[in-house]
C-alpha cells in the first residue's frame, strides 16, 4: 500500500483513535474518514483500505460506511461542491427547476464535475431547511428560498 497520512494527519488520527477504548477502535471510522477527506479531498478505495488498517477492521466494513454517506466523496470534486436538496418538500417547491437550470448553466449532469474542476453538482436528501425550499448548499454555505435568478447571482459571485 502506498497511500498514507502525512505526519500531521497521522498524529490527528492517533488522537482520534485514542478517544475510544482499544477494543472499540472501529468506532473511529467516521472521524477518520472525515480526516481522510480533508487530507485527500475525496475517499478513494485505497483510502478506505488505509483507514481499515488504522482501526484494524476488514476493508469492506469501512467501504460500507464510506459509501453510505453522500458527504464522503468517492471521487475528486470541484472547487465548489453544489448540493441541491431533492427530498419531497423541496421537490414540491420546485427544486427540479433549480437542478435543471444548474445542469444547463454548468453544462454537466448531476453527479459530474465541470472540466475546469470548478463545480461539482449533486442531488442530496433533506438539508433540514424544509420550510425554506428550494435549498442548496455550496461548500459550507446554505442558500434558501431559491429562484433561478438567485442561483445565477450566487454562481457569478464565486471566483
Amino acid at each position: 500500500m502506498t497511500l498514507e497520512f502525512s505526519p500531521e494527519a497521522r498524529q490527528r488520527a492517533e488522537t482520534i483513535i485514542r478517544r475510544y477504548p482499544p477494543q472499540y477502535k472501529k468506532a473511529a471510522v467516521i472521524p477518520l474518514l472525515h480526516l481522510a477527506q480533508e487530507e485527500w479531498g475525496y475517499i478513494s478505495a485505497e483510502a478506505m483500505a488505509y483507514v481499515a488498517t488504522l482501526i484494524e477492521a476488514p476493508p469492506v466494513k469501512v467501504a460500507e460506511v464510506a459509501t453510505f454517506y453522500p458527504m464522503f466523496n468517492k471521487e475528486p470534486i470541484g472547487k465548489y461542491e453544489i448540493q441541491v436538496c431533492h427530498t419531497l418538500p423541496c421537490a414540491l417547491t420546485g427544486c427540479g427547476r433549480i437542478v435543471k437550470h444548474l445542469c444547463e448553466k454548468l453544462n454537466i449532469q448531476v453527479g459530474q464535475t465541470t472540466p475546469d474542476r470548478r463545480f461539482t453538482l449533486k442531488k442530496v436528501e433533506c438539508l433540514a431547511a424544509c420550510d425554506r425550499g428550494p435549498v442548496m448548499l455550496v461548500n459550507k454555505t446554505l442558500y434558501t428560498n431559491l429562484t433561478l435568478e438567485q442561483v445565477d447571482d450566487i454562481l457569478n459571485g464565486l471566483e
Binding site: 478505495a45 483500505a49 481499515a52 476488514p58 476493508p59 469492506v60 469501512v62 467501504a63 460500507e64 459509501t67
Partner: peptide
C-alpha cells in the same frame, strides 16, 4: 436504489 454488494473496498 443504489445499494449493492461489494467485496473489500469495491474490488
Amino acid at each position: 436504489h443504489r445499494a449493492h454488494i461489494v467485496f473489500d473496498d469495491g474490488k
